[in-house]
Design a protein around this nucleic acid. Sequence first.
DNA 1: CCTTCAGGTTAACGACCGCTAACCTCGCTG
DNA 2: CAGCGAGGTTAGCGGTCGTTAACCTGAAGG
Lengths: 201, 201
Amino acid sequence: MVTRTDAPTRREQILKEAARLFAERGFHGVGVDEIGAAVGISGPGLYRHFPGKDAMLAELLVGISGQLLTGAKRRLAEADGQSGASAVLDSLIEGHIDFALDDRPLITLHDRELDRLRDSDRKLVRQLQRQYVELWVEVVREVYPGLSEPSARSAVHSVFGLLNSTPHLGRAGTLPGRGATAALLHRMARGAFEAAGGAEG
Amino acid sequence: MVTRTDAPTRREQILKEAARLFAERGFHGVGVDEIGAAVGISGPGLYRHFPGKDAMLAELLVGISGQLLTGAKRRLAEADGQSGASAVLDSLIEGHIDFALDDRPLITLHDRELDRLRDSDRKLVRQLQRQYVELWVEVVREVYPGLSEPSARSAVHSVFGLLNSTPHLGRAGTLPGRGATAALLHRMARGAFEAAGGAEG
DNA sequence: CCTTCAGGTTAACGACCGCTAACCTCGCTG
DNA sequence: CAGCGAGGTTAGCGGTCGTTAACCTGAAGG
């Protein structure tokens, strides 16, 4: 985990605010003037940093998918051989939870605005997502050999749905602290997989 | 379950197609002309049936929330006393799965376009949703008394995320049949609650 | 047979939105 | 200090979209 100390660039400010606004009101529901206003410049000034509104969404979605996949690969490599598949699965779950808790707007966009992308960008994002899912599927099937591949894939998608539910958990600080929430989500994810792998195949 | 035999009214056709289109491309991403075209009339003809585009979304969202709540109340009443809380929870899960599998576009809209509503409509939908959640929370806490109320509420939201993941499960018929999918989701939901209720409170 | 009305049609208006054009103003740097 | 590029500004164009207006038509009812 690299900790940044320098100030965020204007580009990064824009992406962050755009993500928040897109998540709140949808891609088509946000105007460029609002995005500009959110970072203290006005509308057309954004075009000094991005070729268009679509490009902001594209960069956000490609970035998310890439980060998730990269992180998962790293966790897989770090633990390879020395620890069991079950520990790897725990690590994957932990990584996804961190992401879901720290970047709620992005996790919201991730499966909501994909269809607003240009064909090439959408294909790229889909490919990254697919790799991420397949990586999970392999680990899950190693831990629960009774699961057929289609069932494992369905189970993985469902657990993503469970983990990505964080935006619905109390907008304010009504939820019992980050650590407790992460632990609860982790337990539930493992429980869901356990139940999926217990019976049928 | 009342089975309808008569043909759907024009109003119902419109709502169904609007739901599909809104789910596919977002509320702002669909024009009234497209909705009209989907039912064989053109754009402004819709205004003979609805006062505006917003009204279609409002009716859809209020309808969804109402149906979910009504169904849950019915299931709770049917089983009251004679069967245990665990059976009631199974019944709730079954009802939610039926809805998620049969009305994927609606389940997608349900937590995606809520902010596009007029204040009064949004309040109404939120109230219905809250009642639905609270109903689940009570049943869940009866089955797993170790769970604190905040934890139970988080767990319920997360299980909704799990069950509502159906739109992501193979757009085509690649998933292993409706029955098997429903069974898998049901097992995972129970497993998730079990794991949530096992430890901490 | 005339009237009425539900349920369409097309034309067009007004607002909004993404984007471009043209211009300005600094802080560097040779 | 001249020049220049990075990063802003405002004005405005072109297209789209929700909505309204005005008109049409066919079936039902007295």
